[in-house]
Design a binder for these strands. Structure first.
Lengths: 204, 204
DNA sequence: AAATAATTTAATCAATTGATTAAATTATTT
DNA sequence: AAATAATTTAATCAATTGATTAAATTATTT
C-alpha cells in the first residue's frame, strides 16, 4: 500500500480537480460544462478526472452539496441563536450574506439554476427547512407579527439581500454603473436592509 | 411561388416550432436543450427545425428576445406614465408582475441564467436602461428620497416581487408549503409589497 | 533492490448531437 | 394538366463528449 505520499498526492490532485470543478460548474452550469473544461482548468489529463471521481455527475454532486451548504448553511446558526434579538439577527444575516456574496457573486444564480433542473432532488437537501421551522428566529418573528406568514419576511429579507447579486448584470445595465460603484451600493445595503426590514415589521 | 397556403402552413409549422422552443428552452436552458427535444415537443421532423430556423442558436436568439421583452418590457410604460403618482406606479408594477409571473413562473430564472452565460451580449439589449433612466418614475423617486440611490428602491421592489418566484422551490421547501398555499402567499403580496416599499420610502 | 500498489498518460470508444443532403410529397402557378 | 415552388422526411455526417483501457511511470512496501 502506498500511504503517506499517496495520500498527499491524492489530496493534491484530487483537490485540484475539485477546485477546477467548483469554478467551471459555478460559472457555466452543469449542462454547459464539459469534463474537458474541468480537466484543462485543473491542468490534468481527462482520464484522471474519471479516476478520482467516477463521473461528471459524481463530481457535480460533490460540488453541489458544498454549494448548497455555502448558500444556506451559513445563516442557520445565526437564526438559531437564542441570545440575540430579532433586530440583531437581521443585521448579522445581512452582513454575513453580503460579505459572502461579494466573495462569491455567482453562487446564488448557480444554485438556483441547478435546483430548477430538478427541484425535488435538491430541495430536500436543504435541511434549512427543518432548521428554519424550528429556529428561534421564527418564534421571535411570530411574536412580533402573528398576523403575517413568516415566509413573507424571509422572502423580503433574502430578496433584498440576495437578488441584487442574482440580477447584477441587469441592475448594472439599467443603472449604467461600473462594477466599482455597484460594489459601493452593496456595501451601503449592509446597513440599509436591516432598517428597511424593521420598517416592514412595523407596518400597520 | 407558393403563396397563400404556403404562408399559412409556414406560420403554422413555424409557430409550432417556436412554441416548442419557448417551452423547452425556458424549462431546461440553452445548453441542456437538444434540438431533438424541441422537434419532438413540436411534433415535427428534426430537419424541419433547421429548414425554418437556420440553427439552434438562431432559434434561441428569437426566443430570448421575446423573453427579455416579456420580463422587462411590460413595466416600462407603467413607470413612464406621467399621470400616475409614485404610489400608484408601485401598486401597478407589483400587480402586473405577480400576475405575469404566476402565469410564467420560470421566466425570470431562465432569463437570469442565460444572461449569466454572456452578460455583455444581453445586458445591452435591455433598453430598460435608457427607458428607466429617463422614466418619470425616476424623477418622482428622486424628489421623494434624494439621499438614496434610486437603484436601491428598484432592487427592493424587484427583489421582493420577483425573487419569490426565482426561489420558489427553496421557499416552498423551507416553509413546507404545498403549491396551492404558495400561490396564496403570492396573491397576498400583491397588496403587501406596495405598502412595504412605501414604508421603506419613509424610513429615517 | 525487488515487488507491489498507486498514479498518470495516450489512444480509443460509443453515444450524442447539431446540421445537411437528396429524394419524396404537397401545394401553387401557369 | 403540366410545371414549378415549397414543404417534409429518412438517411447520413462530422464533431463533440463522457468514459474506458492498456501501458507507462512513479511512489511505497517488503
Amino acid at each position: 500500500m502506498a500511504k503517506k505520499k499517496t495520500i498527499e498526492a491524492d489530496l493534491s490532485t484530487q483537490e485540484k480537480i475539485k477546485e477546477a470543478a467548483r469554478k467551471v460548474f459555478t460559472q457555466k452550469g452543469y449542462a454547459a460544462t464539459r469534463t474537458r473544461d474541468i480537466a484543462e482548468e485543473a491542468g490534468i489529463n481527462l482520464a484522471l478526472l474519471n479516476y478520482y471521481f467516477r463521473s461528471k455527475e459524481g463530481l457535480f454532486e460533490i460540488v453541489m452539496v458544498e454549494k448548497l451548504q455555502q448558500l444556506f448553511g451559513t445563516i442557520v446558526p445565526i437564526l438559531n441563536d437564542e441570545g440575540t434579538t430579532l433586530e440583531k439577527k437581521l443585521e448579522l444575516v445581512v452582513l454575513c450574506y453580503i460579505d459572502m456574496l461579494t466573495a462569491h457573486p455567482d453562487l446564488p444564480i448557480f444554485v438556483l439554476s441547478e435546483i430548477r433542473v430538478d427541484p425535488e432532488r435538491f430541495s430536500q437537501r436543504i435541511q434549512a427547512g427543518k432548521l428554519l421551522r424550528e429556529a428561534y428566529f421564527l418564534k421571535q418573528l411570530k411574536e412580533r407579527r402573528p398576523d403575517l406568514h413568516p415566509l413573507h419576511f424571509v422572502m423580503n429579507l433574502v430578496g433584498m439581500t440576495l437578488f441584487p447579486f442574482v440580477g447584477k448584470p441587469i441592475f448594472q445595465a439599467i443603472g449604467n454603473l461600473p462594477a466599482k460603484d455597484y460594489a459601493v451600493l452593496m456595501e451601503e445595503r449592509k446597513a440599509l436592509i436591516p432598517k428597511w426590514v424593521q420598517a416592514i415589521l412595523k407596518t400597520k
